[in-house]
């Protein structure tokens, strides 16, 4: 299956996904509220079987946040990228920790670093930041730490 075929296939299965050009792998934009059903489809659809979530992260674009999910099928070795825009003021998205167990830790990391709230996450607590951390989320662009950050 070439990447072009994969693109067509996914747009058939997920009609709400829009293709984004550029990058090595087929990349799709999804609305946040469709993510959970889309994730289940991607994981279970026999011809896709995106069973390996190898990278989960978030990007702060100042105007909005973008969740980026890199998925791979270990059977066909195809990669796809899913991007979901989130509101900066109230970032919320459904957790996929029950579909890909690795998401549990990665979502906790994104939760504390970007402040994204993952709905129905089994154990959404601080993982890296010290207990009782109050303040901004370190990887947001507006985070300033006058003591530890050195401007070049």
């Amino acid at each position: 299956m070439t990447q072009e075929e994969l693109k067509i296939k996914i747009t058939e299965i997920l009609p709400e996904a829009t293709i984004e050009e550029g990058g090595d792998w087929p990349s799709f934009d999804l609305p946040a509220e469709k993510w959970l059903t889309a994730a289940e489809t991607l994981r279970q659809q026999a011809s896709l079987q995106m069973d390996f979530l190898f990278c989960l992260t978030c990007i702060d674009w100042k105007t909005h946040l973008t969740m980026v999910y890199h998925l791979r099928s270990t059977t066909s070795q195809q990669n796809i990228v899913i991007k979901i825009k989130l509101d900066t003021a109230k970032p919320e998205i459904e957790s996929v920790a029950h579909i890909w167990r690795t998401a549990e830790f990665h979502e906790r990391e994104v939760y504390e670093m970007f402040g994204v709230n993952f709905l129905h996450h089994p154990d959404l607590r601080l993982l890296i930041l010290p207990d009782g951390w109050e303040g901004k989320n370190p990887l947001r662009k507006d985070f300033e730490d006058p003591v530890n950050m050195i401007k070049l």
Binding site: F54, V68, R101, T102, F105, E109
Partner: peptide
Amino acid sequence: KFRSPGFSNLSV
């Protein structure tokens, strides 16, 4: 973003 192997391996 660095997708580090240790982070995922630890989660198991």
